[in-house]
Amino acid sequence: MNTRADIQSWLFQEFASRLGVIFESVAGTTFSVDWDPAPAPLAQDSLCWRQDFSGFPGAIWAITGADGLASTCFAAARQAFPGLAQAISGRVGTEVRCADMEESTPPDGELAWAVFRLTVGGQAVSLLVGLEPALLDACAIEAAAPATALVPPSFESSKTFGLLLEVELPVSVSFGRAQLLLKDVLKLTTGSIVELNRSIAEPVEVIVNNCVIARGEVVVIEGNFGVRIQEVVSRQERLRTLN
């Protein structure tokens, strides 16, 4: 179904799921985010932001209190919007990206509002989210057509080892790790410094598909970073890094 009510419910549920994932990823525990339809807010002493999308009509509004706990929830909501844009992309079949989020005064027009509730550190906090009619209508119109733009092209499978050798794998390099409190993660901004658990004398890890395969030292090659392999990890240790 692609009625405005269906799209509205779907968007609110997607946002609730992604908001819960944000808190779960930084806190390491499951968060349940509940939501209910709400009347238009009478905002006083609150934070109000507008999230637009590049090349897609309509916007989402977020309103919460100005106290510390509410602003923490609001910061998490800002991180959930890109995931919501990705969900919209999958539904409508065209790429949708978040534009710069802007602080604003509460909107005057008719929006579909919902209140989202969750508990952080034993305290209940709520967030108001509003959907502009243009966003709901655009999702309904685009979803009426088959979504094919994001479907990857099909390819013929092969059992030959030679073809497997041509498969590209993502390779990343880990300089270290750190554990931060949820409140500290949400406070990160341009210029913040995060101290890692590895000294500059220790080798970095080369990771393929979440598995450490080698260690080495960082080098510079024609202006780009690189890694000189100093140790290839044994098969037994690779299996341990997957656990």
Rank of each mutant, 00 (worst) to 15 (best):
M1H: 07
N2C: 00
T3K: 12
A5W: 05
S9V: 05
S9W: 01
S9I: 00
L11E: 06
F12W: 04
F15G: 08
G20T: 09
V21N: 12
S25Q: 13
T29N: 07
T29I: 10
T30K: 13
D34E: 14
D36E: 15
D36G: 00
A38W: 08
A40Q: 15
P41F: 06
L47V: 15
C48E: 07
R50S: 12
D52F: 01
F53S: 11
G55K: 05
G58A: 09
A59M: 06
A59Y: 15
W61C: 07
T64Y: 04
T64L: 11
G65W: 02
A66E: 10
A66C: 05
T72H: 10
T72I: 13
T72Q: 14
C73K: 02
A75M: 08
A75L: 09
A76W: 05
A77M: 08
Q79C: 07
A80T: 09
F81E: 04
G90S: 01
E95Q: 04
R97I: 00
D100S: 15
E103D: 00
E103Q: 15
P107D: 13
G109T: 12
L111V: 08
A112C: 13
W113C: 10
F116H: 12
L118V: 06
L118H: 03
T119L: 05
G121T: 09
G122C: 00
S126G: 08
L131S: 05
E132M: 00
P133E: 10
A134W: 03
D137T: 14
A138Q: 08
I141N: 08
I141L: 14
E142G: 05
E142K: 10
A143K: 00
A144D: 13
A144N: 11
A147W: 04
A147V: 06
A149F: 03
L150V: 04
V151W: 02
P152Y: 05
P153I: 05
E156T: 12
S157Y: 14
S158T: 09
L164Y: 06
L165D: 14
V167S: 14
L169F: 05
P170T: 07
P170I: 04
S172F: 04
V173N: 02
S174N: 06
S174M: 05
F175Q: 03
F175Y: 14
R177F: 02
Q179I: 08
Q179E: 13
Q179S: 08
L180H: 04
L181P: 03
L182A: 15
L186P: 00
L186C: 12
L186R: 00
K187Y: 01
T189V: 02
G191Q: 08
L196K: 01
L196T: 01
S199R: 01
I200V: 13
A201L: 11
V204Q: 07
V208C: 09
V208R: 03
V208E: 08
N209D: 15
I213T: 15
I213M: 14
A214M: 10
R215V: 00
G216L: 10
E222Q: 12
N224F: 13
N224Y: 07
N224H: 09
G226Y: 00
R228Y: 01
S234W: 07
S234P: 04
E237D: 14
R238Q: 15
R240Y: 04
T241R: 08
N243L: 15
N243M: 11
